[in-house]
Design a binder for these strands. Structure first.
Length: 427
RNA sequence: UCCGCGAUAGCUCAAUGGUGGAGCAUUCGGCUGUUAACCGAAGGGUUGCAGGUUCGAGCCCUGCUCGCGGAGCCA
């Protein structure tokens, strides 16, 4: 593979891949090979190679699948530091009029050709960082005694009762919905295994049209028995530090390709600042932001607040009214929910939302009624409070928002191979 | 659902109400060290759709379609 070439200097190698680009200067052809691990400039001199090979090099279209043979040379003039003094060239399969040229393209056009756009340097860097992030997330929880538990994707009712969900017919049982969160099921898991996490796709049918929204996205949701809100925040900051520092350490090359300024990412270390909703509102007031006390924080509010800090900030104790029914209220003041949102810096907004859960049967039942939720569908959830209920907490981290933040992208649509947006479900 | 912006060559974009252009891509020619190579030439258009105003509309007006950004909702 191209990434391993430093071990093969002055040796003959044969590599398979695709033609990324080519340049020519009469009797010299520069063929840039792409193999998924990097780029390699292959040099063909007329006279050093057969006429057939030279003509073939001349006729290749962008993204032709090829096999090249030559000697690896240290070459400061080539990007990457190595090049191939090439003499062999085989065509595996042709490519002509490749739709994505080395010049500029609009996002809409690139998204129409997403299946091909994925081959480009920037996109492969993003996909590798996404992969590393996913692995870091799994490693963190696996090493902390969590058990992975997969929740169902088809669910009988809304988890939180607020979002609009994708609906489908489920045989004779009526409607089923695509899950918007695995959390309620994770709570059942926490009562069985102590510490669990779910990690899978979730769906929202909201007509959200912003750079932070997808209709299908991935979320990781840890849930811990015998944990209160403070334990939850402790876990969140340790978790964030681990996954961000891991990517910084292992994906330096990819972050460089993306021209990511990693100054602020390096600050992602515990302790993260913790402020209450009231303190957050004070910050808004000091910055002359128009804001009605009691409302949830909007996108611009989050940006103003997070700009006050040099690392992610945790905002806790939100007004209970703007939060989900299952969140436990503060025993000191039941106007507030024991909830926490983690806001990423640089305007990336909420990447984590979590809370301590209501563990009292009577209270939870009355919340379900207040929110006009179908009690029958939540009987199993109420059982968790009937049989050995304990304080427990958890949070959800949006993978795509995290990838966008770490990569410094201005839209989550580039963080997932095939994004699903309200006006796009292809390719 | 609401607010704002946009749609012109395969792509990215120009064009004062008066003969629709450029760069890249494609094809052909030139160049023995190119770095989104460069130089020369050629082909390439129902200006998103439907109406209207005007002697004349890519440009002005109305409606529609599609897209982008934001709000709300949320991770």
């Amino acid at each position: 593979m191209i990434k391993d070439l430093s071990q093969f200097v002055n040796q003959e190698v044969t590599l398979k891949g695709w033609l990324y680009n080519k340049r020519s200067s009469g009797k010299v052809k520069f063929v840039i090979l792409r193999d998924g691990t990097g780029l390699l400039q292959c040099v063909y001199f007329k006279g050093n190679v057969t006429d057939e090979v030279f003509e073939l090099a001349d006729s290749l279209g962008q993204e032709s699948a090829i096999e090249v043979t030559g000697k690896v040379k240290v070459e400061p003039r080539a990007s990457g530091g190595f090049e191939l003094d090439a003499y062999g060239l085989k065509l595996i399969s042709e490519s002509h009029n490749y739709p994505i040229t080395p010049k500029e393209h609009g996002v809409e056009y690139l998204m129409d050709h997403r299946h091909l756009w994925l081959r480009s340097t920037k996109q492969t860097a993003i996909l590798r960082i996404r992969h590393r992030l996913v692995k870091a997330i799994r490693d963190f929880f696996d090493n902390c005694g969590f058990t992975l538990m997969d929740p169902p994707i088809l669910t009988p009712a809304a988890c939180e009762g607020t979002s609009t969900l994708f609906e489908t017919n489920y045989f004779d049982l009526g409607k089923a919905y695509l899950t918007q969160s695995g959390q309620l099921y994770a709570e059942a898991g926490a009562m069985a295994l102590g510490k669990v996490y779910t990690f899978g796709p979730t769906f929202r049918a909201e007509k959200s049209k912003t750079r932070r929204h997808l209709t299908e996205f991935w979320m990781v949701e840890p849930e811990v028995a015998f944990a209160d809100l403070n334990n939850d925040m402790d876990l969140a900051e340790e978790f964030l530090e681990y996954i961000v520092q891991t990517v910084l350490k292992d994906k330096e090359e990819e972050l460089k390709i993306l021209e990511r300024d990693t100054t602020l990412l390096k600050n992602v270390k515990k302790p993260l600042p913790r402020i209450s909703y009231d303190e957050a509102v004070d910050i808004l007031m000091k910055n002359q932001i128009e804001f009605e006390y009691g409302n949830d924080l909007g996108g611009t509010d989050e940006t103003v607040i997070s700009n006050q800090f040099d690392r992610p900030v945790m905002v806790h104790h939100y007004p209970a009214e703007v939060k989900a029914f299952y969140m436990k209220r503060d025993p000191q003041n039941d106007k507030f929910a024991l909830a926490v949102d983690v806001l990423a810096p640089e305007g990336y907004g909420e990447i984590i939302g979590g809370s301590q859960r209501e563990d009292n049967y009577e209270t939870l039942l009355s919340r379900i009624k207040e929110h006009n939720l179908p009690q029958e569908a939540f009987e199993w959830y109420l059982d968790l409070r009937r049989y050995g209920s304990v304080p427990h907490s958890g949070f959800g981290l949006g993978l795509e928002r995290t990838v966008a933040w770490v990569c410094g992208l201005d839209h989550v649509r580039e963080t997932i191979p095939f994004p699903r947006l309200i006006y796009r479900n292809t390719p």
